[in-house]
Structures are given as C-alpha cells and as structure tokens.
Design a protein around this nucleic acid. Sequence first.
DNA 1: AAGTGGTCTAGACCACGGA
DNA 2: CCGTGGTCTAGACCACTTA
Lengths: 247, 247
Amino acid sequence: MHNAKNVAANIFETRPLYLQVHGRLLGFLTDATWKPGQMIPNEIELARDFGVSVGTMRKALQTLTDQGLLVRRQGRGTFVAQAQALDAAPLDNVRNARDEPLQWQLQSSQLDAAVATDHELSALELSEGERVFRLQRVLRNSATTSTMLEHCVLPEKRFAGLDSDSEAHKLPVGQLGRRYGILVGPGAEHVEMHIADTREAALLDVTRGDALLKLVRIARSLDGVPVEFRVAFCNLRMGSTYLNRIR
Amino acid sequence: MHNAKNVAANIFETRPLYLQVHGRLLGFLTDATWKPGQMIPNEIELARDFGVSVGTMRKALQTLTDQGLLVRRQGRGTFVAQAQALDAAPLDNVRNARDEPLQWQLQSSQLDAAVATDHELSALELSEGERVFRLQRVLRNSATTSTMLEHCVLPEKRFAGLDSDSEAHKLPVGQLGRRYGILVGPGAEHVEMHIADTREAALLDVTRGDALLKLVRIARSLDGVPVEFRVAFCNLRMGSTYLNRIR
DNA sequence: AAGTGGTCTAGACCACGGA
DNA sequence: CCGTGGTCTAGACCACTTA
C-alpha cells in the first residue's frame, strides 16, 4: 500500500501531501483535462489513483471547492465549476438602494481587433506585436437610470475566433469567458474618480465635467496570466452604490 | 466515553457536531470568556471537555480561524485574535500607485456625545433616546497629499467612558475597537460619488464642487449588532485608488 | 524534553439523489 | 437500491516553539 511518507520523503517535494495533490488536480483544470461542468471521479477513486488516503484527497478537493473551482453535491458527485464570470465585478458590485445587483441592458456594443498598444501589452503581459480584441459597450439600467461605459481588452490568443462569432460582441463578458473555457482566479479592482469628457458624457447621458466612478481591473486566469484588462466608467444614479465586501 | 451520536441524536439539535461546537466556542468569544490575545486550552483538552473527537474539535477551531477570530501557531498554541480593526476599511483600502496602504496622519479630531438622530438610530439599530459618540477626524497622507474626512458614530453603551478618556479621540478607530474589546464580523462598504460642499472643501483642501469618493459603512460585531456607523469622504490624489478585493 | 498545532491514515456511519 | 459526498472517530507521526 502507498504510504504518505514514501511520497512526502521525496527530497524535491516536501510540501504537505494535500497541497501536492491540490496542485496536480489544479493542473487538470488549467490544462482542461477536466472541463467546466464535467463530473470528476469520486473521492475514493481519486485517492486510490494518487496513492493517498481519502481524508487527504478530501482536503485537496475541499481547498479547490473553497477556491470556487469545484462544486461538490452530496449524493451526486463533484463537478468542475462553470468558468467564473469575468465580470463578477464591476457589474455585480453595482447595487441599487435595496442592495440588489442591477439588471443591465446592452445599449451599444463595438468589437475590433488590433495590435496591442504599449499600455495594453504591459497590462496583459503580452509580447511586442501581439494582437488583442477591444470590446466597448454601453450598458444601462432602466430602473435607476444608471449607465456604464465598459472598455475591455482581451488577448487574441485566448479568445481565438471571437471576431468571427457574430454573437460574441453582444454577450456579457462573463458568458464570453465561459464560452472560451477561461477560469478566473481571485483578483482586485481599483476604484478611482473620473471627470467625464465630451465623448463619455455623450455615451453615458451625463454632462461634460460630471464625476464618474472609474473601475480598473486586470482579471487573471488560475495560473496568474492576465486574460482581461478592463476600464469601466460608471454613472451611479438614484441611490445606486458600488459594493465592497469586507473580509 | 462520549459518542458523537449521543450528542447529535438530541432531537432539538441535529446540526453537525462541529457546527454546534463552533457555536459554543463563538459564545466564549462574544461574551468575552476568552479575551483578545488570550491563549485558549489546547485542542485535546477542548475535545475532552466537549466530549467530541480531536478531529471534530479541530474542524470547529479551523472554522473560527478562517473567520479570523482565532490565531493558531504550531508549537505555541491557539489565541483569540486581537479585535479586528474597525477601520480595516476604508483606510487600508486606500492605496498609492504601488498598491501599498497609505500612512495617514491625524490632522484634526473632534469628539462629542449626544442623543442619536433618527438616522443614526436606524443605522445602529438603537432605541429611541439612546446616546452615541460622534468622532470626526481629518486625515492626511503627505506622500500623495490625499485627504480623508471621517465621520464615525459609535453607540455609547458599547464605548462607555470614551469621552472621559483624553487619549481616545486621537486614536485610530481600529485601536479604539481593540481597547473596548470589540470583535468585528464580515461586512460591506458602499462607495458613492459626492460633490464637496463648502465645509468639506475647506477641511479636505479641495475646491467646492470637486468630486470626492464617499464611503459608507456599518460595522457589526460577531453577533450582528451594529457597533459603528461611518461615513468618510476621500480625496484621492497622485494615483491613489480605492481597492476592492475580488473573491 | 515537553507541549503545541499540522498532517495523514483507516474505517465507520449518515444524508442525499437518482435509477 | 446503490453510489455519492458529509461527518465523526481514534490514533499515529511530524514540525515547530519554548524552556
């Protein structure tokens, strides 16, 4: 029978067994051996395959579940999570006066592909000359009359064929991520103040010189590679707020 | 020997054992049987006292650790966390261009006690006629020249004697929480836009009509009772941003 | 050396969901 | 009914801290 010490005693790998297992399982997710929505083998079988006890395998699986990468259902099985929405923020974090997420209607949308600018290259950690898709859309919530101008930059190699998909530019970015099988890891969004210029004022139905919330985010896939660079300008109306969950 | 089934079979309490234990331990924290910084009994002893296995006790302790309420150190013991800073946000979430928290200098500070207004009553869930402390301070970060106007409202019953402590109004609110043994649970902060009026402009060194970030927060203790109602106005300068951690 | 939390195992039983 | 994940136990050994 396998023994924990036989594995852990490897001088090249002294991390706890469950972390080593976690890393191997994570590999199955990042290289798409296991695809979103798919059911994976049960914990007994996995434990046997990896030569660890069920308890250790459970701990590795639980860690992945805590990270939102797996979903476990008693009586059913363990499933790969659907790709986390690329736009969990900022869209979900804009709330109405009752602290409910707003329902956004797509007002306009525009997609083009081009060689990345220096700024985009550095944000997305691309090499000189790599191409990106730029997706610009205006969203509106009729209940509060809040509006948002989104400017997303996506690496072409991750979203190959995006421009030939006629539906693509109409979809919320979150569904795009799902369609391209991209799993997004934890990250951060930075909030700034911004004064609307003439163009933004026209698109967002505000007056030039009005104050907007500027939301900047670089989303990274599980392995830390940037998959989306987004800047959004938001006009909060009628008690709408931007939510920051603490802890 | 105690047996899990003997306990869990109680028809009035069918939750998992480790959750029941978690609740009991949480009680020791909320009623200050265990005080911040104090070392608590080791897991073997606790397991024996509660009549559960060490594994179950570990799971309960781990849950409290995940919540930030206990700190466990291999070889040393398990300790009650210092009261979480009441001002973990917004102060820690304001970052400079290198994404480091700003160092704030207290510019001015003013403390008074009064009967709560209706608005304060409802925010802090107090009864008619209850009294509150109001703590207003202006903070400044010299490196970025960012400024913040903080307006904190604290229930008098939770901070008894605050006004007779001559040092109190100079301390950051986080240290106040620690001094009064208040453990803060998870929460949320809402970000809004705000246009500076004359008074705010003078205090924050901006021009009347300038846009400010308005940060609104109700902090609650572990049992969900509000312990702080804060509204802060922030002037972000020289690349400073307000950080929202995702997931 | 003694005491602490951290890891790992092996196996039992329970609760849930679907055939 | 069977297979799944969820809970619980008992005990071993390891790694770290302090005296």
